[in-house]
Write a protein that binds this DNA or RNA. Structure first.
Lengths: 154, 154
DNA sequence: ACTTTCTCCTGATTTTCTAAGGCAAAACTG
DNA sequence: CAGTTTTGCCTTAGAAAATCAGGAGAAAGT
């Protein structure tokens, strides 16, 4: 039920690289009939291995030229800070990821904006406007060495 | 040639959320014929707005239960450190992202591993084994508040 | 006012998806 | 160990979708 074999992994691997591949071609590459591969894929989706499909967009082409990481420290004396922070983050379109971490700070935020001007506005109007935000440290990305690599399934 | 209109943005937005949507259904949602939408999409791909498609896999289901961020400081006295580091990162399957940042450290690495044991092995055998790595700081993620949100295209 | 280009449409052909039915090997069960 | 069930795969056929060719109408440029 929750175990997957080598063929399943190959399906996931191919699909992670090309989510729009035709089932016929996928079956050819796997070495099974389209029907079998379709059934396996259906199972992989049902069991939660595949959560969905998406187009990979080029952020620079869309005017989002600046990638930043922000370390956020919260003021733990205020109640509900964590809930309120998490909720505000969800509705913020610039924020692509947000993780609560163990270590020197509380949250690590990954955001994409047009440029430094846009970032200053984002920092002031969104992040610092939240109650309970005590301190932030911003790291601007100069070069994306590796971007959104596929998960190792093999 | 490089400008996109409201319809294009809508296509990108829908496709980012569901990369496997049938062109027929996409056209219905847009309010155009399948052919027109297909032509627009082809152009968006040709002009680099769409870089590809991929299945979104559940890392936990694949045994990758631990997400970590690592700040890496390099020893700049050695020549080629940056090139060698970048190259090694590319071939490391645990590393999902790696960015050169401006600020207190040199690289920010995002990696997924099975557990702390696996992370210790990764840290020792991959990261620290690289020549020129002076210091690392690891932040283990306790909770993923927001994961891989779509880019704001609208 | 004329041409060119752009965007979209319709209709026909080809490809792909999906569902039904069957076969053989493996796993259960008494 | 024999009988049954389940599982995984296959082929086939009908439905759906993608793709291509051709053309109409509006906008832009000359």
């Amino acid at each position: 039920m929750t175990e997957i074999d080598k063929i399943d992994r190959k399906i996931l691997s191919i699909l992670q690289g090309d989510g729009r591949i035709a089932n016929v071609e996928l079956a050819e590459r796997i070495g099974l009939s389209p029907t079998s591969v379709g059934e396996r894929l259906k199972r992989l989706q049902r069991d939660g291995f595949v959560e969905g499909y998406g187009a990979r967009l080029n952020p620079h082409r869309l005017g989002l030229g600046l990638l930043v990481f922000v370390e956020v420290m919260l003021d733990k004396t205020t109640p509900d800070v964590f809930e309120r922070f998490a909720k505000a983050i969800q509705t913020s379109p610039e924020v692509l990821e947000c993780h609560m971490v163990a270590g020197g700070f509380d949250y690590l935020v990954k955001a994409r904006v047009a440029d430094m001007t846009a970032y200053r506005r984002f920092l002031g109007e969104t992040l610092l406007a939240l109650p309970g935000v005590r301190e932030t440290r911003t790291y601007a990305v100069m070069e994306e060495v590796k971007r959104d690599a596929p998960l190792p399934v093999g």
